[in-house]
């Protein structure tokens, strides 16, 4: 199993996580996925959504340093975390969590830790 595949598998150990995906923030290419495919949108769509939000904020506020995006539905939380990386285009860690079994604050911290460790 590749390094990225193992990283996605470790995320599934976090409580409530039903799927995790690593996406190129510029091209939308999927680098890794684990979990339920139906729980997350396509990688390219996740990338486009993040880009639109970033563009909208930049136009409105001049701010471009996106850190994360959280979307909550009646069933799930969807976290998109920009992965810290010394060089190279941004990567997005996209995670789906079951809302009823997730403490969002705790899950966000765990996913932040995973994101920081990914390229450490």
């Amino acid at each position: 199993m590749s390094e990225l595949a193992m990283a996605m598998r470790r995320l599934l150990d976090c409580q409530g996580v039903s799927a995790a995906m690593l996406v190129d923030g510029t091209t939308g290419l999927e680098y890794g996925f684990d979990g339920d495919r139906s729980a997350l949108p396509r990688a390219a769509d996740s990338c486009d959504d993040a880009r639109r939000i970033s563009d909208t904020l930049e136009v409105a506020t001049g701010e471009v340093e996106l850190e994360n995006i959280t979307v909550t539905t009646t069933q799930c939380h969807y976290l998109t975390r920009v992965v810290p990386r010394e060089r190279g285009d941004s990567l997005l860690l996209v995670v789906a969590l079951a809302r009823e079994s997730t403490n969002l604050a705790l899950a966000t911290r765990q996913i932040d830790d995973h994101a920081r460790q990914l390229f450490a």
Binding site: Y31, R85, L118
Partner: peptide
């Protein structure tokens, strides 16, 4: 992990 991303991209 970084090398894998670079090689795949």
């Amino acid at each position: 992990a970084e090398l894998e991303v670079v090689a795949v991209s």
